[in-house]
Design a protein around this nucleic acid. Structure first.
Length: 833
RNA sequence: GCCGGGGUGGUGAAAUCGGUAUACACAGGGGACUUAAAAUCCCCCGGGAGCAGUCCCAUGCGGGUUCGAGUCCCGCCCCCGGCACCA
């Protein structure tokens, strides 16, 4: 006996009930045994959140809902879908918040995680709560440390002194990927260059493979392009320019024999009229003459003081200083002056260039500013050796001139010939250079996994033995970073003073912690294996579930997390630990939710807080609305009132299955509705598969409108398939209606996605547009597949068409079957007798 | 500057192997039901002309190809995102 209230759509009540049921029945979780035996495994991954104190924001929910819809869809099509979630809770972000709030991160994070968990459950995600990870849990970061040691043991982690990016506000070094236009990606402070000994993972070893594999993986194009641009390969040559001896030069340390430069245009070497070193170049001192020394030192000091933003942005015109030294152009055998200038970067190539002002815009500007000679060595069509250069001619097309025996060759031929000939003398070598740098993972901060290394005076850096992992991050009340360039852990003497694991003598722990991005570079391997505490990931389960089938996340990680994760997987593959190189078979970048045309931000005051909306409308409505805003991969503009549409739709759906008066009737579906139903199934299936959720929802709305048109009462066969179609978007109401339709168990158990029947989707009659000279003048109804003659006859009978054809000669008739008919006409030539 | 993505009603957006532009939804207006509200249902809703049938114009701007262009080509303008002296 159903009561009145029992027949009213009450989202809060049914969502609470079904979430409890899912937990109780284990609907969304796998046992270890199930993970081992799943027959059609599908790993549906989304980027795990950083659990902020503010709670889940709309952007998180948008991304997770879109990924969850995909997971539920795959499940309804018969896959065993593993959909885990976790928390990326280490890192500067959390730590800075803790500093500001005056709370220890160890006290702060658990509350945030609990709040996120509550919100994630409330939005109705199909998460496996038995397989979550928290990167700050010792039983997780134990394996992050283990992972680092694998790199260390395979020679892929090394400590080296190199120019690194120092953020003076966060007081730590940053990876290149975390520096945006010379500023810290998090706080926007211009970064400084420092030379400190740091731990690097040698991602550059993998640059070529990371680049080449991109063309073979099913990823969003924008993401692949961003990675290509970031890694960027340049093919060219390294060429040695011997330094000219100076009689009066002191021999302190001896003169360098030659300075290597990297160039992509060895063919232009006859036009190299001077050389430029980066101000930080280690050979600057050696080439500088005594007379130039003061000026050179002053310039270097000035450059050092400049942050990278100033160096890259403000100094638009080029500056530099002559060192007083010369080296020999190995092609012309003539001396050329050596300059230093800040437009040459120590971080790329060799930090030294051969300047070819005739054929490089930057060198051209510099040569003009300092009166250095400009020589043409490539002539385009219609030019010759003497044609003056108004601007640098940079194209690799034309013919070599002023280049001795190479005159007349094409730049490409000359490129190879010159490298070959100089190579024979040991002065040149073909070389491929990448823009990608090694990944600096040291952080001089507190809130991260300690790097598991012990420094011993005798043994050098020694790995912490596996059985001593994890190196537990000690609770330190004063965890503020400082200017010193070392971590706050360096203030905790009784923690870092340990015996050397190798020789037993007094030694010290590494006090830096590792980059948060190392935590997240392997978390997807951990999820299915959290049942194991004696290994980071289990070989058998990993073989069954990985690589990840679909990964959905934000494109802001295109060159951060997504690059690091690929690198880690590739390295683990080479170590024989996993049998795939690429961890994510398919990656889709979702769009951004904006509001009022602008990104949501606290400063703009346009942030949407999801909790009250879910409370008022229910998670199903909110999910449906977010997915309806626009194409998932493009994002959408959040409009407060728009939620009324999806809300009404779910109400009408409910009302159709649970009529206010009486029961849902059985009986045959209306034939026209049946046709529309199958067309809808087809559209929704295609569009959901393509992540085009907005149009899928529109198709469902259209169908329900038709079912209810004019207040008609639908029968079961008309609405039951719609309940299945809507289930990925609005799982709670779908479960409830599924139950009320008389089914047992979850709609997500069993392959309940409706079957599309092409025969039933076929329309018998079609509307054909009739044009005269390309303008629509009417439509006619015709049987599907009607031939041209039949349609022409029907069209001519249409009064408005006939009117436009009157007095006209038909030159041509274009017929697009079942779509369109176009009469091409011209005014009839009137013949008079 | 370079590389992506995009400019369509009052608004979010549909339609891209060239084939009835504005689906779906919001906002707005009118109506039915109701004591009332909610919910539900019906109608109108790009601009202009006309009583109407209907006609003209409109997808950032200017050209072009085509029987036919939001869609393709050429030249611009604007917005969003990324990269930025990479030798």
């Amino acid at each position: 006996m159903s009561t009145r209230s029992d027949r009213t759509y009450d989202p809060a009540a049914i969502e609470r009930e079904w979430q409890a049921t899912w937990d109780r029945e284990g609907t969304n979780s796998f046992t270890l045994d199930e993970l081992r035996t799943a027959r059609r495994p599908f790993y549906n991954l989304m980027m795990f959140p950083y659990p902020s104190a503010e709670g889940l924001h709309v952007g998180n929910i948008y991304a997770f809902t879109g990924a969850d819809v995909h997971g539920r869809f795959q499940r309804m099509r018969g896959h065993d879908v593993f959909e885990p979630i976790g928390f990326d809770a280490f890192g500067i972000h959390s730590e800075n918040f803790a500093l500001k709030a005056g709370v220890h991160p160890m006290d702060l994070i658990p509350g945030n995680v609990a709040n996120f968990t509550r919100q994630l459950r409330r939005m109705g995600g199909m998460f496996d709560w038995d397989h979550t990870v928290d990167t700050t849990a010792p039983d997780y970061y134990r394996w992050t440390q283990w992972l680092f040691l694998q790199f260390f043991k395979h020679g892929l982690a090394e400590q080296k002194e190199a120019p690194v990016n120092w953020c003076p506000s966060d007081m730590t070094v940053l990876a290149n990927e975390q520096v945006v236009v010379g500023a810290c990606e998090r706080c926007g402070t211009p970064v400084e260059q420092r030379f400190i000994r740091q731990w690097f993972l040698r991602i550059t070893e993998y640059a070529g493979r990371l680049l080449d594999n991109l063309s073979a993986i099913d990823w969003s194009d924008t993401t692949r392009k961003a990675q290509r641009a970031w890694i960027r390969r340049s093919r060219g040559a390294e060429i040695l320019f011997p330094v000219m001896e100076e009689a009066d030069k002191e021999a302190d340390g001896g003169n360098p024999a030659a300075i290597p430069v990297f160039t992509t245009r060895p063919d232009t070497i006859f036009g190299a009229t001077y050389m430029v070193l980066a101000p930080e170049h280690p050979l600057v001192d050696a080439v500088t003459s005594d007379t130039a020394r003061d000026e050179v030192d002053a310039y270097r000091a000035r450059t050092r003081a400049m942050d990278l933003v100033a160096r890259q942005k403000i100094e638009k015109h080029k500056t530099g200083v002559f060192t007083g030294g010369y080296c020999i152009n190995p092609a012309t055998r003539r001396p050329i002056p050596v300059w230093i200038a800040d437009y040459v970067l120590m971080g790329y190539g060799t930090g030294a260039i051969m300047a070819v002002p005739g054929h490089d815009e930057r060198d051209f500007d510099f040569a003009n500013a300092y009166g250095l000679p400009i020589v043409r060595v490539v002539a385009d069509e219609g030019e010759d050796a003497g044609t003056p250069l108004a601007i640098a001619y940079e194209y690799p097309q034309g013919t070599l001139v002023n280049s001795g025996r190479y005159d007349g060759l094409s730049p490409e031929e000359a490129h190879h010939a010159i490298v070959d000939h100089l190579g024979a003398e040991g002065l040149a070598e073909s070389q491929v250079t990448y823009r990608l740098h090694d990944w600096c993972i040291s952080r001089q901060r507190y809130w991260g996994p300690p790097i598991p290394i012990i420094h011993c005076e005798d043994c050098g850096p020694v790995a912490v033995p596996d059985e001593d992992l994890p190196v537990v991050l000690p609770r330190v009340e004063d965890f503020r970073p400082d200017e010193s360039g070392v971590s706050p852990l360096a203030r905790v003497r009784d923690w870092y003073e340990v015996p050397c694991p190798s020789c037993g003598r007094d030694a010290t722990r590494e006090t830096d912690v590792s980059d948060t991005f190392l935590d997240s570079a392997w978390y997807f391997l951990r999820y299915p294996c959290t049942d194991f505490d004696d290994r980071p990931f289990d070989a058998e389960i990993t073989r069954r579930w990985l690589p990840v089938d679909t990964y959905i996340g934000g494109n802001e990680h295109a060159v951060l997390h997504l690059l690091y994760a690929r690198f880690v997987a590739m390295a683990l593959h080479d170590m024989g630990r996993v049998d795939f190189e690429e961890p994510f078979t398919q990656f889709r970048a979702h769009g951004l939710i904006i509001r009022g045309g602008a990104k949501m931000s606290k400063s703009k005051g346009n942030v949407i807080i999801p909790d009250p909306i879910i409370e008022r409308y229910g998670a199903d409505t909110f999910r449906l609305y977010l997915m309806f805003l626009g194409p998932f991969m493009a994002g959408g503009d959040y409009q407060d009132k728009g939620i009324a549409g999806p809300h009404g739709f779910l109400h009408r759906l409910w009302e159709s299955v649970v009529p206010r008066n009486g029961e849902l009737a059985d009986g045959p579906p209306d034939p026209e509705l049946e046709t529309q139903l199958h067309r809808t199934i087809q559209r929704v299936t295609d569009q959901v598969a393509a992540l085009r959720y907005n149009t899928a929802i529109a198709a469902m709305m259209e169908y329900l409108n038709a079912v209810r048109a004019g207040g008609r009462t639908p029968v079961r066969a008309e609405v039951e398939p719609l309940v299945r179609l809507v289930a990925p978007f609005a799982p709670h109401i779908a479960e409830e209606l599924w139950r009320r339709l008389g089914n047992r168990g979850s709609i997500f158990d069993g392959a309940n996605w409706p079957e599309f029947d092409a025969a039933k989707a076929a329309e018998r009659q079609v509307r054909v547009a009739v044009q005269v000279n390309g303008k629509v003048r009417g439509t006619v109804s015709a049987p599907k597949g009607a031939d041209r003659e039949a349609v022409v006859a029907a069209a001519r009978a249409e009064p408005n068409v006939a009117r436009h054809l009157a007095g006209m000669a038909v030159r041509k008739v274009i017929h697009v079957p079942d779509r369109l008919l176009n009469f091409v006409v011209a005014r009839e030539v009137v013949r008079t007798k």
